[in-house]
Protein backbone atom coordinates (compact mmCIF):
# COMPACT_ATOMS: atom_id res chain seq x y z
CA UNK A 1 0.00 0.00 0.00
CA UNK A 2 1.00 3.56 -0.55
CA UNK A 3 0.31 5.96 2.27
CA UNK A 4 0.60 8.84 -0.14
CA UNK A 5 -2.07 7.41 -2.42
CA UNK A 6 -4.26 6.86 0.63
CA UNK A 7 -3.91 10.52 1.60
CA UNK A 8 -4.87 11.60 -1.92
CA UNK A 9 -8.05 9.51 -1.75
CA UNK A 10 -8.93 10.42 1.85
CA UNK A 11 -8.34 14.15 1.36
CA UNK A 12 -11.52 16.10 2.00
CA UNK A 13 -10.66 18.12 -1.10
CA UNK A 14 -10.68 15.07 -3.35
CA UNK A 15 -13.22 16.28 -5.92
CA UNK A 16 -15.95 13.69 -5.56
CA UNK A 17 -18.93 15.74 -4.47
CA UNK A 18 -18.85 15.13 -0.73
CA UNK A 19 -18.84 18.82 0.12
CA UNK A 20 -22.52 19.13 -0.78
CA UNK A 21 -23.63 16.44 1.72
CA UNK A 22 -23.91 16.73 5.49
CA UNK A 23 -24.37 13.05 6.36
CA UNK A 24 -27.65 13.83 8.09
CA UNK A 25 -26.18 16.65 10.18
CA UNK A 26 -28.36 19.35 8.59
CA UNK A 27 -31.56 17.55 9.58
CA UNK A 28 -30.20 16.77 13.07
CA UNK A 29 -29.25 20.42 13.57
CA UNK A 30 -32.72 21.52 12.51
CA UNK A 31 -34.27 19.01 14.92
CA UNK A 32 -32.22 20.57 17.69
CA UNK A 33 -30.24 17.36 18.25
CA UNK A 34 -26.85 18.75 17.28
CA UNK A 35 -26.22 22.01 19.08
CA UNK A 36 -22.55 21.92 20.07
CA UNK A 37 -19.36 19.90 19.90
CA UNK A 38 -20.57 17.34 22.45
CA UNK A 39 -23.79 16.52 20.61
CA UNK A 40 -21.88 16.53 17.32
CA UNK A 41 -19.55 13.93 18.78
CA UNK A 42 -22.47 11.80 19.90
CA UNK A 43 -24.02 12.09 16.47
CA UNK A 44 -20.78 11.17 14.73
CA UNK A 45 -20.18 8.23 17.08
CA UNK A 46 -23.59 6.80 16.26
CA UNK A 47 -23.00 7.31 12.56
CA UNK A 48 -19.55 5.74 12.77
CA UNK A 49 -20.87 2.49 14.27
CA UNK A 50 -23.82 2.20 11.90
CA UNK A 51 -23.52 3.71 8.41
CA UNK A 52 -19.77 4.06 8.90
CA UNK A 53 -19.29 0.38 9.70
CA UNK A 54 -21.53 -0.78 6.85
CA UNK A 55 -19.86 1.55 4.34
CA UNK A 56 -16.42 0.48 5.49
CA UNK A 57 -17.26 -3.20 5.12
CA UNK A 58 -18.72 -2.64 1.65
CA UNK A 59 -15.65 -0.65 0.63
CA UNK A 60 -13.24 -3.23 2.03
CA UNK A 61 -15.16 -5.96 0.28
CA UNK A 62 -15.01 -4.18 -3.04
CA UNK A 63 -11.31 -3.58 -2.52
CA UNK A 64 -10.89 -7.33 -2.00
CA UNK A 65 -12.53 -7.97 -5.35
CA UNK A 66 -16.07 -9.04 -4.43
CA UNK A 67 -18.67 -8.66 -7.18
CA UNK A 68 -19.68 -4.97 -7.29
CA UNK A 69 -23.25 -5.78 -8.37
CA UNK A 70 -23.76 -8.03 -5.35
CA UNK A 71 -22.26 -5.44 -3.06
CA UNK A 72 -24.45 -2.76 -4.59
CA UNK A 73 -27.56 -4.87 -3.93
CA UNK A 74 -26.34 -5.48 -0.36
CA UNK A 75 -25.97 -1.72 0.05
CA UNK A 76 -29.54 -1.22 -1.21
CA UNK A 77 -30.84 -3.72 1.36
CA UNK A 78 -28.94 -1.90 4.11
CA UNK A 79 -30.24 1.51 3.06
CA UNK A 80 -34.02 1.49 3.39
CA UNK A 81 -34.37 5.24 2.86
CA UNK A 82 -34.81 5.98 -0.85
CA UNK A 83 -33.38 9.48 -0.28
CA UNK A 84 -30.20 7.96 1.12
CA UNK A 85 -29.99 5.38 -1.68
CA UNK A 86 -30.24 8.21 -4.20
CA UNK A 87 -27.58 10.23 -2.40
CA UNK A 88 -25.26 7.21 -2.19
CA UNK A 89 -25.57 6.50 -5.91
CA UNK A 90 -25.09 10.13 -6.81
CA UNK A 91 -21.94 10.29 -4.70
CA UNK A 92 -20.82 6.99 -6.18
CA UNK A 93 -21.18 8.35 -9.67
CA UNK A 94 -19.26 11.50 -8.77
CA UNK A 95 -16.50 9.53 -7.09
CA UNK A 96 -16.26 7.22 -10.07
CA UNK A 97 -15.73 10.20 -12.37
CA UNK A 98 -12.96 11.57 -10.17
CA UNK A 99 -11.43 8.13 -9.72
CA UNK A 100 -11.32 7.34 -13.43
CA UNK A 101 -9.54 10.60 -14.09
CA UNK A 102 -7.15 10.12 -11.17
CA UNK A 103 -6.35 6.39 -11.38
CA UNK A 104 -7.44 5.20 -14.84
CA UNK A 105 -8.26 1.50 -14.78
CA UNK A 106 -10.25 -1.01 -16.79
CA UNK A 107 -12.06 -2.09 -13.65
CA UNK A 108 -13.36 1.43 -13.01
CA UNK A 109 -14.36 1.79 -16.67
CA UNK A 110 -16.23 -1.49 -16.36
CA UNK A 111 -18.04 -0.24 -13.28
CA UNK A 112 -19.08 2.92 -15.13
CA UNK A 113 -20.48 0.80 -17.96
CA UNK A 114 -22.37 -1.40 -15.53
CA UNK A 115 -23.75 1.47 -13.43
CA UNK A 116 -24.18 4.47 -15.73
CA UNK A 117 -26.28 6.25 -13.07
CA UNK A 118 -23.94 5.34 -10.27
CA UNK A 119 -23.30 2.51 -7.83
CA UNK A 120 -23.39 3.00 -4.05
CA UNK A 121 -20.48 5.21 -3.05
CA UNK A 122 -18.72 2.70 -0.74
CA UNK A 123 -18.62 0.14 -3.56
CA UNK A 124 -17.00 2.70 -5.86
CA UNK A 125 -14.69 3.70 -3.04
CA UNK A 126 -13.44 0.12 -2.67
CA UNK A 127 -12.77 -0.23 -6.39
CA UNK A 128 -11.08 3.15 -6.41
CA UNK A 129 -8.79 1.97 -3.63
CA UNK A 130 -7.92 -1.07 -5.76
CA UNK A 131 -7.17 1.13 -8.74
CA UNK A 132 -4.95 3.29 -6.53
CA UNK A 133 -3.02 0.25 -5.36
CA UNK A 134 -4.57 0.38 -1.90
CA UNK A 135 -5.93 -2.46 0.21
CA UNK A 136 -9.20 -3.25 2.03
CA UNK A 137 -8.17 -1.58 5.28
CA UNK A 138 -7.31 1.62 3.38
CA UNK A 139 -10.72 1.61 1.71
CA UNK A 140 -12.39 1.02 5.07
CA UNK A 141 -10.39 3.82 6.66
CA UNK A 142 -11.55 6.23 3.97
CA UNK A 143 -15.18 5.20 4.51
CA UNK A 144 -15.14 5.62 8.28
CA UNK A 145 -13.24 8.87 7.97
CA UNK A 146 -15.91 10.23 5.65
CA UNK A 147 -18.68 9.01 7.94
CA UNK A 148 -17.35 11.28 10.67
CA UNK A 149 -15.68 14.15 8.83
CA UNK A 150 -18.70 14.78 6.57
CA UNK A 151 -21.08 15.75 9.40
CA UNK A 152 -18.27 17.45 11.32
CA UNK A 153 -17.35 19.87 8.53
CA UNK A 154 -21.00 20.41 7.63
CA UNK A 155 -21.73 21.40 11.22
CA UNK A 156 -19.04 24.06 11.02
CA UNK A 157 -21.03 25.62 8.18
CA UNK A 158 -24.43 25.00 9.73
CA UNK A 159 -23.84 26.14 13.29
CA UNK A 160 -20.75 28.26 12.91
CA UNK A 161 -19.18 25.73 15.25
CA UNK A 162 -15.54 26.42 16.01
CA UNK A 163 -13.65 24.46 13.32
CA UNK A 164 -11.04 23.44 15.89
CA UNK A 165 -13.75 21.88 18.04
CA UNK A 166 -15.18 20.04 15.06
CA UNK A 167 -11.79 18.68 14.07
CA UNK A 168 -11.15 17.63 17.66
CA UNK A 169 -14.35 15.56 17.50
CA UNK A 170 -12.92 13.62 14.56
CA UNK A 171 -9.64 13.18 16.41
CA UNK A 172 -11.31 11.93 19.58
CA UNK A 173 -13.22 9.35 17.59
CA UNK A 174 -10.09 8.10 15.83
CA UNK A 175 -9.41 5.12 18.13
CA UNK A 176 -13.01 3.97 17.76
CA UNK A 177 -12.77 4.50 14.03
CA UNK A 178 -9.75 2.20 13.93
CA UNK A 179 -11.72 -0.53 15.69
CA UNK A 180 -14.60 -0.09 13.25
CA UNK A 181 -12.14 -0.55 10.40
CA UNK A 182 -10.96 -3.82 11.92
CA UNK A 183 -14.51 -5.11 12.25
CA UNK A 184 -15.29 -4.03 8.72
CA UNK A 185 -12.26 -5.73 7.22
CA UNK A 186 -12.92 -8.94 9.19
CA UNK A 187 -16.46 -9.03 7.82
CA UNK A 188 -15.28 -8.21 4.31
CA UNK A 189 -12.84 -11.12 4.37
CA UNK A 190 -15.71 -13.47 5.12
CA UNK A 191 -17.68 -12.37 2.04
CA UNK A 192 -15.67 -14.60 -0.31
CA UNK A 193 -16.80 -17.70 1.61
CA UNK A 194 -20.17 -16.69 3.06
CA UNK A 195 -21.49 -14.16 0.57
CA UNK A 196 -22.67 -10.64 1.28
CA UNK A 197 -24.79 -11.73 4.25
CA UNK A 198 -21.52 -11.68 6.18
CA UNK A 199 -21.47 -7.89 5.85
CA UNK A 200 -22.67 -5.92 8.87
CA UNK A 201 -26.10 -4.30 8.65
CA UNK A 202 -25.98 -1.85 11.56
CA UNK A 203 -28.72 0.72 11.16
CA UNK A 204 -29.53 4.14 12.57
CA UNK A 205 -33.32 4.62 12.54
CA UNK A 206 -33.20 8.39 12.96
CA UNK A 207 -30.71 8.89 10.12
CA UNK A 208 -33.11 7.07 7.81
CA UNK A 209 -36.25 8.78 9.11
CA UNK A 210 -34.79 12.29 9.07
CA UNK A 211 -33.27 11.79 5.62
CA UNK A 212 -36.76 11.46 4.16
CA UNK A 213 -37.96 14.65 5.82
CA UNK A 214 -34.80 16.47 4.72
CA UNK A 215 -35.27 15.38 1.11
CA UNK A 216 -38.59 17.22 1.10
CA UNK A 217 -37.31 20.54 2.39
CA UNK A 218 -37.47 23.32 -0.18
CA UNK A 219 -34.75 25.34 1.53
CA UNK A 220 -31.59 23.55 2.58
CA UNK A 221 -27.85 23.97 2.40
CA UNK A 222 -26.94 20.34 1.77
CA UNK A 223 -28.14 17.69 -0.64
CA UNK A 224 -28.40 15.11 2.14
Amino acid sequence: MSRSALLVLADGRFPAGGHAHSGGAEAAVAAGRITDAASLEDFCRGRLHTTGLVSAALAASAALGADPAELDAAADARTPSPALRTAARRLGRQLLRAARATWPSDELDGLARRFPKGAHQPVVLGLTARAAGLGPADAAHCAVHESVSGPATATVRLLGLDPFDATAVSARLAPEADRVVERAVDAARRVAGEGVDALPAASAPLLEILAEAHAGWSVRLFAS
Binding site: G24, A28, A31, R33, I34, S39, D42, F43, C44, R45, G46, R47, L48, H49, T50, L53, E176, A202, A204, P205, L206, L207
Partner: peptide, 11 residues
Protein backbone atom coordinates in the same frame (compact mmCIF):
# COMPACT_ATOMS: atom_id res chain seq x y z
CA UNK B 1 -21.70 0.08 20.13
CA UNK B 2 -21.28 3.76 20.95
CA UNK B 3 -23.74 6.44 19.97
CA UNK B 4 -26.78 4.12 19.96
CA UNK B 5 -28.72 6.52 22.18
CA UNK B 6 -27.36 9.63 20.46
CA UNK B 7 -28.86 11.98 17.88
CA UNK B 8 -28.07 9.80 14.85
CA UNK B 9 -29.66 6.61 16.12
CA UNK B 10 -32.37 6.87 18.80
CA UNK B 11 -31.92 10.27 20.46
Amino acid sequence: TGGWDGPAVLA
